[in-house]
């Protein structure tokens, strides 16, 4: 019982405290690729800390939805952190839900965030909400088909079980369906977490924003919660990608040594993916909003190919 509580606490701490570091890492690598020195790795902590000290200015046209959303958003991400197997396949609270539950928790967060975007009645917020929802809705089929592909391989939709089966398969990386599903899921992860080429997290131009436009009204601790939640979402997606598709190092039994190895492996895998994202964001430009369906339908095609390959090429 105590170990189980300990594992969940560690998971919460990894996601909660690791998220700003991950954001800092991506920014730092991007700065280096752009020939800049960039801010330190710990800069996002300073940003969040500063936001906590600021007062919150809230639009007078808003309702309780606007003030409630940041807390709910943070709570959905923390709950996801409890479900995702980060270090071990024996996540104590894994029974709360499988990968589909995880996707619906993200959708719940998006639902309220888009409502909050509409709440203040500003044109920017509405625009951001509309676009965010469009991206989220169009990404949904890809996610589910990719999950179907994974479930086909693992014979299960539980996160723990998928990882356990994956770790037992030595020829995993040579399975085309596996790689196709990874690519599809990666594109979806970019879309869901608002990274380039779907959304530019560093833009200052309202008209090109998606996520940022929605939260223009937030300040102080509310903004802090939202930025923190966005970081956590990125971390959880990267953790999912690294553990579902490259399940090396994940502890199959709970021993201190195995957990330590799992932690190092997780840090390295997420770090590699973060560097990959930074490289990608330096290399590609943001797509026009109405070119996004082409990208997402491409990822859908990849996911469907993954399913086909699992069905036909066993």
């Amino acid at each position: 019982m105590l170990t189980q509580i300990l594992i969940e606490v560690i998971q919460l701490l990894i996601v909660g405290l690791g998220a700003p570091l991950l954001v800092g890492l991506v920014r730092r690598v991007k700065a280096r690729l752009q020939g800049r020195r960039g801010a330190g790795l710990l800069q996002p902590y300073a940003d969040l800390h500063k936001l906590l000290a600021q007062e919150a200015v809230v639009s007078e046209t808003t309702s309780w939805i606007c003030r409630f959303t940041p807390y709910l958003l943070a709570a959905t991400m923390l709950l996801s952190a409890l479900l995702v197997p980060l270090l071990t396949t024996q996540t104590p609270l894994g029974f709360l839900g499988n990968i589909i539950v995880l996707m619906y928790l993200f959708l719940l967060g998006t639902f309220f965030l888009t409502l909050a975007g509409l709440d203040a009645g500003s044109a920017f917020g509405g625009m951001g909400s509309s676009r965010e929802m469009a991206v989220a809705a169009l990404a949904e089929p890809t996610v589910m088909i990719a999950i179907f592909a994974i479930a086909l391989r693992a014979g299960n939709t539980g996160l723990d079980e998928i990882i356990r089966r994956g770790a037992a398969d030595s020829l995993l990386l040579l399975t085309p369906g596996h790689l196709l599903a990874f690519m599809a899921f990666f594109i979806v992860a970019l879309a869901e977490t608002g990274r380039l080429p779907v959304d530019n997290p560093a833009t200052h131009l309202e008209l090109t924003m998606i996520h940022e436009a929605m939260v223009l009204e937030y300040s102080g601790r509310y903004l802090m919660l939202i930025e923190w939640a966005a970081g956590m979402k990125l971390l959880i997606f990267l953790a999912l990608l690294s553990n579902l598709f490259f399940p090396w190092g994940v502890a199959l039994a709970i021993t201190p040594f195995a957990l330590a190895v799992a932690f190092v492996a997780l840090a390295m895998k997420i770090g590699a993916l973060a560097v990959g994202i930074a490289v990608l964001e330096t290399a590609v430009a943001k797509l026009r909003l109405f070119r996004l369906p082409a990208l997402l339908s491409g990822s859908f095609a990849l996911a469907l190919l993954a399913v086909i390959s699992f069905l036909f090429v066993k």
Partner: peptide, 10 residues
């Protein structure tokens, strides 16, 4: 900081 202030929409 728990203070909050209502102001017009930006």
């Amino acid at each position: 900081n728990a203070a909050w202030r209502a102001y017009e929409t930006w």
